[in-house]
């Protein structure tokens, strides 16, 4: 087989990562006062260890190939498992940026409701009630009981 096995691919990628890390370690400025061990020493050691380990990994025989127990899959393309991971990630990103303008309660209820729909839950009323009650009780605990400020956004409270 001319194709690289899993550990070889991983080893290469991680070695590249360690080289990048080392390159940054060498860019760490030195401290004006004499220090027995300066800020750059530990990162250099870590980068080097990581590089050596990725070389080892390259030569290590992979264990039993990662289980490929493909679940028989039926459904539209957006219900594919990989799509769900991607969609969840996107949802988190959107949430992170919507939190301030929309406010905690609105953004979180939308996230909870949206995700449970995405994961295939069809009783929308139930999921709306659950998301809403959990989020509001969290909100009240944080802001009222603990005095932690959370963004209010478009709601008045």
């Amino acid at each position: 087989m001319t194709r690289l096995h899993a550990n070889q691919t991983l080893g290469l990628i991680l070695a590249l990562f360690s080289l990048g890390y080392l390159w940054m370690a060498f860019a760490i400025p030195s401290f004006p006062l004499p220090r027995p061990v300066d800020s750059d020493a530990f990162p250099k050691a870590l980068g080097l260890s990581f590089f050596v380990l990725s070389v080892f990994l390259f030569f290590e025989r992979p264990e039993t190939p990662p289980a490929t127990d493909k679940v028989a899959f039926e459904g539209t393309w957006w219900q594919r498992p990989t799509m769900q991971v991607i969609a969840t990630s996107l949802a988190i990103i959107v949430y992170a940026f919507a939190l301030q303008p929309l406010g905690f309660v609105v953004a979180s209820v939308a996230l909870g409701f949206g995700l449970s729909c995405l994961y295939g839950y069809q009783r929308w009323v139930v999921s709306m009630i659950v998301s809403f009650s959990v989020v509001v009780s969290l909100y009240l605990t944080m802001t009222k009981a603990l005095g932690i400020y959370l963004p209010t956004g478009i709601l008045p409270f």
Binding site: T88, I92, Y95, A96, F97, L99, Q100, S108, L111, G112, F113, L115, S116, C117, L118, Y119, G120, Y121, V126, S127, V130, S131, V134, V135, L138, M142, I148, Y149, L150
Partner: peptide, 22 residues
């Protein structure tokens, strides 16, 4: 589906509550 969504929300709230940083 709801459990997964709730775990996500709890994690996000917890993390946001640490430093209030997106």
């Amino acid at each position: 589906p709801i459990l997964l969504a709730l775990i996500l929300i709890f994690c996000m709230v917890g993390v946001f509550g640490l430093n209030f940083s997106r």
